[in-house]
């Protein structure tokens, strides 16, 4: 697909002798929300790590914004406009909310624009503004997830990668988080979200992929996937 802003073509990756990704191909088009579904250890996080260059692909190519990025270092990839919200949030707990947001913008130089982006995060998450000087580690789970997303947004990504944003959150908060993701998308950021919570993710996504033990087993529009009988197989597969 030529209008894909991020595409993985026949990518494989392994940890030592263990193959974690086996010849996967994914396309994310500009302006879309795409989700990658799969159970534990299916290779979801590895996919994100490979995109960001934190795990090296053994084969295949990753194209972002028309250029191959699979050989670049993580900072180079981030500076091109790909940022991740890591699994379990992983905030800098001893730093203040503001400092966490500034870390996100660490690659950029323009103070005025960074300030603008921080304000934008605060307009998305007014709660964070109230806690601007508070230590990130003392925020509640929901606030921490907001801050983790905010920290990624201050890097001004073209594509935002989210690793299990629903993990460890109460259902009501999960809903809020996904509404926010939708809002960020509507403001022009492409979203690639990795999730176990398939129904939640598909309810906001345009398209979805299902990953099972390192391979893509399904690929369709979100609406079709929601109806697909094999969707539950992908999750229950290991338990059969």
């Amino acid at each position: 697909m030529s209008d894909a802003i991020l595409s993985l073509r026949h990518v494989s990756a392994s940890y030592g002798p263990v193959r974690a990704l086996d010849d996967i191909s994914i396309d994310v088009n500009e302006g879309e929300i795409v989700c990658l579904l799969g159970s534990n250890a299916a290779g979801k996080s590895t996919t994100l790590r490979t995109i960001l260059g934190m795990t090296r692909a053994n084969a295949g190519e990753i194209v972002f914004d028309g250029e191959r990025i699979e050989g670049l270092t993580t900072p180079e990839i981030v500076s091109r406009g790909l940022t991740m919200v890591p699994e379990n949030r992983r905030l800098f707990g001893k730093m203040s909310v503001k400092e966490n947001l500034e870390i996100g913008a660490n690659l950029r130089d323009d103070k005025a624009e960074i300030q603008e982006d921080i304000e934008r995060v605060f307009s998305l998450f007014p709660r964070l503004k109230e806690r601007i000087r508070q230590r990130a580690g003392t925020l509640s789970g929901g606030e921490q997830q907001m801050l983790a997303i905010g920290r990624a947004l201050t890097a001004r990504p073209k594509v935002l990668l989210l690793d299990e944003p629903s993990m460890g959150l109460a259902p009501i908060l999960v809903e809020q988080v996904f509404e926010t993701i939708q809002e960020i998308n509507s403001q022009g950021t492409t979203i690639f979200v990795v999730e176990q919570n398939a129904h939640m993710a598909l309810s906001i996504a345009d398209r979805g992929y299902v990953l099972q033990t390192g391979s893509i087993v399904l690929e369709d529009t979100a609406a079709n996937l929601l109806e697909h009988p094999k969707l539950s197989d992908a999750y229950l597969g290991e338990m059969e």
């Binding site: 934190m54 270092t73 991740m84 992983r90 800098f92 707990g93 001893k94 400092e99 870390i103 920290r151």
Partner: peptide
Amino acid sequence: SRVGRAWAAMREDEDVAEAMGISVVR
């Protein structure tokens, strides 16, 4: 400064610092 913040982030969580685009080695 930006450098000081990057160091602080690195000290706290090297992996995430790297994922945030901080060139840890540099």
